[in-house]
Nucleic acid binder design. Structure first.
Length: 128
DNA sequence: CCTATGACAGACA
DNA sequence: GTGTCTGCCATAG
């Protein structure tokens, strides 16, 4: 695990992650979009796999776009599942979470408004 | 500048 | 549903 360098992106991404409420989850791509970088999902993953940055963040509320826990068995999967269940998020076989029910849907003001964030929120509304 | 490395996402078979 | 492939991006050397 490396130490993370503080940049505007990492700062914003961490802000977004901190804003995820207890009992809800967000995807890597969602965090990236809300942080203003629609396609930087891998950048978000980089931030989280760097323990120095994950410390103090509700990292367990971040899952992949398929609604699954991305950590491997024996490499954090069990811990993440346990933490989610502890806040009443239903986690099924293979670490599956129903995004339709547990995805965090930030209201205006919950997160800074970048074009990417606005687009994400708009598309989320359309899906409803 | 260049290469390597992901807790990714989407498209497609 | 699974497996593969490709594009993408931030960050570290």
């Amino acid at each position: 695990m490396e130490t993370l360098r503080e940049t505007p992106f990492t700062r914003k991404a961490k802000e977004v992650i901190r804003a995820i409420p207890r009992g809800r989850v967000a995807t890597y791509g969602q965090i990236a979009a809300l942080a203003g970088r629609e396609r930087a999902a891998r950048g978000v993953a980089w931030i989280l796999h760097s323990s120095s940055a994950a410390a103090g963040l509700p990292w367990h509320r971040v899952i992949n776009a398929r609604g699954g826990i991305s950590l491997g068995r024996g490499r954090g999967f069990e811990e993440q599942k346990k933490r989610l269940i502890a806040e009443d998020v239903e986690v099924g076989r293979g670490g599956r979470v129903d995004l339709k029910r547990f995805r965090w849907e930030p209201k205006d003001g919950a997160v800074s408004r970048s074009p990417a964030a606005r687009k994400f929120l708009r598309e989320l509304t359309i899906r409803h």
